[in-house]
């Protein structure tokens, strides 16, 4: 069953005297209950803005949001802030990138947990305290009673992220959005946090959106992946399918730039994608990745690239590219001729 439906979501930042910037453009995806969906992209690809738009957390001034976001049958995009406040934290919660700054430094961990529980779950302070203790235990924090009375700065980064996760899952949300939850942590802790998230999703049956630039995180955690580039989804597929058959040249480039431990030839340099995300083309003029693409041809700049379906109706694998990697060139030419 579909839990979250994002349809044609677009976010435009406008500033007087400046060209409006379309940060997210025509993003469409679904999240089912119990499913983990990865959104992958580099800085500036619009993945964080997408998550903020889903939460309704973008400022109202200077930002226009188009498209619809429907969570469990309720359209979030048509709600006012008051209604959204009831949904946020209760039905959908977010885990942020930097646990060092995402907890209020002058309030104890316990109070921050209790605040959410009393806000949404209708618990009294005493009940909330007991529940907070349970939650800390559930996210693997030893000696929870002591930790509740402590301040965030008394915890390590990994512990703080566990507290953040405890706060996010406090009211048993249907959807969890994790915005680069492991980026600020060191590698061993990253693995622990990902393990924890995997367990929580499996136990609670909630849906999860994992926003990351790390394909390793996606591989270990997600069922489906959407690759974003310059505000649009350029490739969507099941995780296994994507890793086995990366079809957009950008996805392919990303996968090739991961160092491999089984590559013994020291002469092999790590593959990189030339240029930077700033070398881009507006989507309505052509493919935004064209300036960096090794497979680019002249047609790439003739209007927005069409989406090619490489999968089947049951296992879709759409790619926004005229010359997907690994596809027969004649097939591609046939597509264009049609």
């Amino acid at each position: 069953m579909t839990l979250l439906e994002v349809r044609d979501l677009s976010v435009t930042f406008t500033r007087s005297g400046q060209q409006p910037v379309r940060a997210v453009d025509g993003v469409t995806f679904d999240v089912a209950a119990g499913q983990s969906v990865g959104i992958v992209g580099e800085s500036g690809s619009g993945k964080s803005v997408t998550s903020l738009a889903v939460m309704g957390l973008l400022p109202s001034r200077g930002v226009s949001v188009g498209g619809t976001v429907t969570l469990d049958g309720n359209e979030l995009t048509s709600m006012d802030q008051r209604e959204l406040r009831d949904v946020r934290g209760r039905d959908v919660a977010m885990i942020f990138q930097d646990p060092m700054t995402s907890l209020n430094p002058v309030v104890t961990n316990g109070k921050q947990l209790v605040e959410v529980l009393t806000r949404h779950a209708g618990l009294s302070k005493g009940e909330a305290k007991t529940e907070a203790e349970q939650l800390l235990r559930r996210v693997g924090i030893p000696d929870p009673v002591r930790r509740l009375g402590e301040y965030p700065h008394q915890l390590s980064g990994g512990m703080r992220q566990r507290v953040m996760i405890a706060i996010a899952i406090a009211c048993r949300p249907k959807l969890l959005i994790a915005d680069e939850p492991t980026t600020a942590l060191d590698v061993t802790i990253q693995a622990q946090i990902l393990d924890l998230l995997r367990t929580l999703v499996a136990e609670s049956g909630c849906g999860m959106i994992m926003i990351t630039h790390d394909l390793g995180v996606v591989a270990g955690l997600c069922d489906d992946v959407h690759v974003m580039y310059s505000g649009r989804i350029v490739e969507s597929a099941g995780t296994k399918d994507l890793f086995a058959r990366p079809s957009h040249p950008y996805t392919d480039g990303l996968l090739q730039s991961i160092p491999r431990i089984d590559d013994d030839d020291p002469a092999d340099l790590l593959h990189t994608i030339p240029g930077s995300a700033r070398d881009t083309v507006a989507w309505d003029r052509g493919c935004a990745f064209q300036p960096r693409c090794e497979r680019a041809v002249a047609e790439c700049l003739s209007g927005p690239p069409a989406v090619t379906e490489l999968g089947t109706p049951i296992v879709p694998h759409p790619v926004r590219c005229l010359r997907p990697v690994g596809e027969d060139v004649s097939l591609h030419e046939g597509n264009v001729a049609r």
């Binding site: 949904v87 919660a93 942020f96 700054t101 806000r119």
Partner: peptide, 26 residues
């Protein structure tokens, strides 16, 4: 603009609670 304020907003904490319990003490 601090992260913890965004985090509090993402949890549906009311405006006045954010001002008086989070922003003001900091």
């Amino acid at each position: 603009g601090a992260d913890y304020v965004l985090a509090a907003r993402s949890l549906g904490i009311s405006r006045s609670a954010i001002v008086f319990r989070h922003v003001l003490p900091n």
